[in-house]
């Protein structure tokens, strides 16, 4: 059995994304989806409903009255903000584990993923991409291949880093050379297995080489820019550091300049610090949902 076969087998052992998350992502991917469908997707998941209400009543939103139902929450916060939070919290269980192969301690991959999600939403606005929620979600999930590949990277770390240091390969090119696949390719396979929309699968597969797609795909471009920004800002950097290619043509394609990059970086860090505080804050007691 080759290394790559082993790796592919591992994909099946990964815990599945919670059903509600899969449903929400599908709804987000559909431009004609209604608020009612979102409420439907969440309301049968009691744990998630409880979490949504806890978040709504936390200091983060600073609402003056208590939110006691999902409909209430949708009205007060808007679906966009709320869905982003639900997805960020819901992926915490999967992305929160340490990933030793990448030098990431517990919580670091989740933090980097949320940062990428926030930056992707910002770039979506800057590039006038209509589905900001989809951009957020794609950014959030770009790192899932690391969950599978981490233990293989750990075993071959010396060889991978030698290629990076001595042959100036990017980290993903070095993964390909040593392991036969990259965390982007593996991540795309995981996303397929989780039945996520094709556009998200594509953005994971081409996060480091968006110009390989012809014609280019705006969502893939957005995820690439978001990830570049997060690495530059030093959010949860691992042993792979900043050893990835930045594709300058993506910036030109969307009429973006270095000032846009800096503004996104600035807003992302501010938002990330608020979100992190929310995660650390003790649960806010909420009444039973009605």
């Amino acid at each position: 059995m080759t290394n790559i076969d082993h790796i592919l087998d591992q994909i099946d052992t990964l815990p599945a994304l919670p059903t509600t998350s899969v449903k929400i992502v599908s709804i987000i991917g559909n431009p004609n989806a209604s608020v009612g469908e979102i409420v439907e997707a969440i309301k049968y998941d009691q744990a998630l409903t409880g979490e949504v209400l806890r978040l709504c009543n936390s200091a983060y939103f600073g609402l003056s009255r208590q939110i006691t139902s999902l409909n209430d929450a949708m009205v007060c916060l808007g679906t966009l903000k709320l869905l982003q939070l639900v997805m960020a919290v819901h992926t915490n269980g999967i992305l929160n584990q340490p990933q030793a192969g990448y030098g990431l301690e517990g919580g670091m991959l989740w933090r980097q993923s949320v940062a990428t999600a926030i930056a992707a939403a910002e770039f979506a606005k800057a590039a006038r991409y209509p589905n900001v929620n989809l951009a957020f979600t794609a950014g959030l999930l770009q790192g899932i291949g690391k969950l599978v590949l981490s233990s293989y990277v750990a075993k071959s770390a010396n060889e991978i880093l030698r290629l990076v240091d001595e042959e100036h390969k990017s980290f993903d090119d070095a993964e390909k050379a040593v392991l036969g696949s990259t965390h982007s390719e593996i991540g795309a396979l995981v996303a397929e297995r989780w039945k996520l929309p094709e556009v998200i699968v594509r953005s994971i597969r081409h996060q480091h080489d968006p110009s390989a797609l012809s014609p280019p795909d705006t969502l893939v471009d957005i995820v690439h820019l978001a990830l570049c920004t997060v690495l530059l800002m030093g959010i949860s950097l691992g042993t792979d550091g900043l050893c990835y290619r930045a594709d300058e043509s993506v910036m030109a394609r969307h009429g973006l300049t270095h000032a846009d990059l800096e503004v996104v970086g600035m807003n992302m860090c501010t938002e990330l610090q608020r979100l992190a505080a929310l995660q650390e804050s003790p649960s806010v007691a909420v009444g039973a949902s009605s």
Partner: peptide, 15 residues
Amino acid sequence: GGSTLLDDNGTFNIG
């Protein structure tokens, strides 16, 4: 500090 990504010719060079 002041690191940068690979293949960067300026646009991304915040560092």
